[in-house]
Design a protein around this nucleic acid. Structure first.
Lengths: 139, 139
DNA sequence: ATTAAGAATGCAACTTTGTTGCAAAAGTAT
DNA sequence: ATACTTTTGCAACAAAGTTGCATTCTTAAT
């Protein structure tokens, strides 16, 4: 299990570096989505701010993580599920939940986004759904 | 029609000031959602950046505008529809659409967000749906 | 209409967040 | 082990957002 992060990097054809392994580890350990800031507080002493920005960008492009929109100017990131990473096919069709009590944002992997009918002339490429309220841990 | 902005302010128990009227006017004229930056470029010569921040904050709190989440760290704002403002009751249950071609974000007022079943233990308070793709004007 | 009280604005200073170019260091493949 | 490529850290900068306070504008009551 120690090698999990390294494997993800190799599968994505990325070179294996200490900072990438560490940031992946942070995601693997987390039970919720992380903002840039969260990651920075966990390892800014070890790695430069700029490196974190670039690493998140790289992970996004490779489909290792996906981002979750927000209304607070704090885009959050979460690991894509295994199928996503191994197949290369993206299926981030799940709902995200933000708890107003604990502030955590999580992926509800089992809750699919319901289909929507757009008006004539609109073409859908991606869809994002974020629900907030109280999570099961807080209530 | 000239008084529309002023009426909105009065209905929300806000004092009528030049900057608030101007910012409301910008929203009334716009056919898409606006980021802070958009507003700034339209009136930063007339009003201070700080005033714009505070005005948007106030409008949000009063329910005059609502915000639209994004993954690009550019929260956008749009006027709530009339019913929203007059009844004080929020019903921003519509889908938002972001066009990848023209970059505009719009409210699809006629497209309701479909219901979602959350797992046991989760309570929903708000829900947000953002679709992106190509809008009817661009294709 | 005038005025007093309260609210909003502008300014200045500051903090945080994000970006870019470049030299040094580390990783990869031979 | 070496040459080549990629990544990192640093520095400098640009942009975004925040706060306190003095001044100005609104409002409501006289």
């Amino acid at each position: 299990m120690k090698k999990q992060g390294e494997d993800i990097l190799k599968n994505s054809a990325l070179s294996v570096t200490a900072s990438r392994k560490r940031i992946l580890e942070i995601f693997l350990d987390a039970d919720n989505a992380l903002a840039h800031q969260d990651i920075e507080t966990k390892c800014a002493d070890q790695y430069d701010r700029v490196t974190i920005y670039r690493t998140l960008q790289t992970f996004l492009e490779k489909g290792i993580i996906h981002n979750i929109p927000s209304t607070d100017n704090m885009v959050r990131y979460a690991l894509c599920n295994d199928a996503c990473i191994t197949t290369g096919h993206h299926n981030d069709n799940h709902v995200h939940f933000r708890c107003d009590a604990c502030g955590k944002t999580v992926c509800l992997d089992d809750v699919n986004i319901p289909p929507v009918n757009l008006p004539k002339g609109y073409t859908m490429k991606e869809i994002n759904m974020v629900v907030n309220g109280i999570c099961k841990s807080c209530k």
